[in-house]
Amino acid sequence: MTTTTTTTGPRVVDLALGDPGHPAPAAVRVALRRAAERTSFGYAPASGFGALRESLAEKLTRSNRIAARPGEVVVTTGASQGIYATLAALCAPGDRVLVPAPGYPAYRAACRTLGLVVVDYPVGRGQDAAPDWARLEALAGDARVLLWNYPSNPTGTIADPAWYPRLYALLDAHPGLTAVSDEVYEELCFDAPHVSPAAAAGPVADRIVSVFSFSKAYAMTGMRVGYLHARAELAARISRAHWGVGMSTPAVSQLCALAVLHGAGDYPEEHRGVLRAGRDLLAGALSAAGLSVELPSAGCFLWLDVAGSGLDGLSWTRAASEHCRVLVAPGRDFGPDCGDRVRISFAAPTVQLTAAAERFSRWAAAGWPGEGRPGPGAAPSPAPSAAVAVQP
């Protein structure tokens, strides 16, 4: 193997996963210390602790404009398991699920595990950010679920509320279709606020399941606390499906989530500032290196077009590992027609982002050497294998 960079900073920089490098709120540490004084923990209720569900219903009503009651809220082991349980409650093997492309890889993994048929629908960004409505309308007739993901992973696009009437009309025209709205990045919006589609859905509100998480907004990925809102009857079915997969969300994690709701109100704004700085640092280096960089409006990823390097996304991913010791995720894992893209997290600590930016710059200066295309002055060096991101 060859390398064109020096190894300043961490030996390996992992930017493949969306794992926040910012410390969690102080309220989490306080809650953990208090939990450590308890002598025992039993199973939590299937749908989550009552106090947490009450607080989440208040949050959904206040912040998301979703008129929620505690009986309509289910606490899940991360948003991913919430989506999985929702699909299990709504679908039977062979049912068709409309999945955004590009989109979070775990959507497809969940569908495969449940024996469901993935039907991709294109979503864009920038001037072409809206989903392909013509494609959706053509496919909706025999689909059971529409997976809707805004703010988007991986593109960082925020939904324009002007799109929602078309979404509502689609649901109204197809009574067998339910929209599952993944809103994990709701607190990580840089350019415009997130608006939940269920907020103004009117008659079709009962056919929108809204999914959220503490992972990204509060740097609590390892705590595995997600939650969702659905009509009461469907929420009960989702809760049973969730119980069948993982019983209940860990009690300690729920206590931390409750502490955050009541004691970390200013944290997301601070977290956004850190992420924005990381975004701009990494984007600036890659742009200066000659790649076309579109700044995401939300989330914690650059959805990078690497065609300017002369490499495709998979080759770029492997070469970044080999030449820079930086792990990124190849675009092909997020859907068809993404072969020239890679996804790069800017949620890592500043020291790691700085090291990655310096290594990318040196790699570019050497002419983007890749597989079968060594750069000048290359020397043998061990390097890790490229990682594939499956993080929400």
Results as ranks from 00 to 15, higher is better:
residue 9 G to A: 10
residue 118 V to I: 13
residue 341 R to Q: 15
residue 331 G to F: 02
residue 184 V to L: 13
residue 384 P to D: 08
residue 31 A to Q: 00
residue 57 A to Y: 03
residue 101 A to Q: 12
residue 392 P to F: 14
residue 183 E to L: 07
residue 67 A to L: 09
residue 28 V to G: 03
residue 113 T to M: 12
residue 108 R to E: 14
residue 328 V to K: 10
residue 235 A to R: 11
residue 376 P to K: 08
residue 17 L to H: 13
residue 54 E to Y: 04
residue 292 S to Y: 08
residue 199 A to K: 02
residue 58 E to H: 11
residue 56 L to S: 00
residue 40 S to H: 14
residue 114 L to N: 11
residue 322 E to A: 14
residue 78 G to N: 06
residue 217 A to W: 01
residue 188 L to I: 05
residue 150 Y to W: 10
residue 218 Y to I: 01
residue 301 F to S: 08
residue 386 A to D: 11
residue 148 W to E: 02
residue 11 R to I: 13
residue 290 G to C: 01
residue 330 P to N: 04
residue 335 G to F: 10
residue 42 G to W: 09
residue 321 S to C: 12
residue 322 E to N: 05
residue 68 A to N: 00
residue 169 A to W: 07
residue 289 A to V: 06
residue 264 A to N: 07
residue 88 A to D: 15
residue 202 G to F: 14
residue 242 H to S: 15
residue 96 R to Y: 05
residue 6 T to H: 14
residue 58 E to L: 06
residue 309 S to W: 03
residue 301 F to H: 13
residue 53 R to F: 06
residue 334 F to C: 12
residue 254 Q to N: 13
residue 336 P to Y: 12
residue 360 F to H: 04
residue 255 L to P: 01
residue 85 A to T: 03
residue 94 G to L: 09
residue 59 K to T: 12
residue 19 D to C: 08
residue 38 R to L: 13
residue 391 Q to M: 15
residue 384 P to Y: 09
residue 87 L to A: 04
residue 284 G to N: 06
residue 262 H to P: 00
residue 154 P to V: 07
residue 200 A to P: 01
residue 268 P to N: 13
residue 96 R to D: 08
residue 273 G to Y: 09
residue 18 G to P: 01
residue 225 V to N: 01
residue 137 E to P: 00
residue 388 V to T: 15
residue 43 Y to K: 13
residue 123 V to D: 04
residue 346 F to Q: 10
residue 54 E to Q: 12
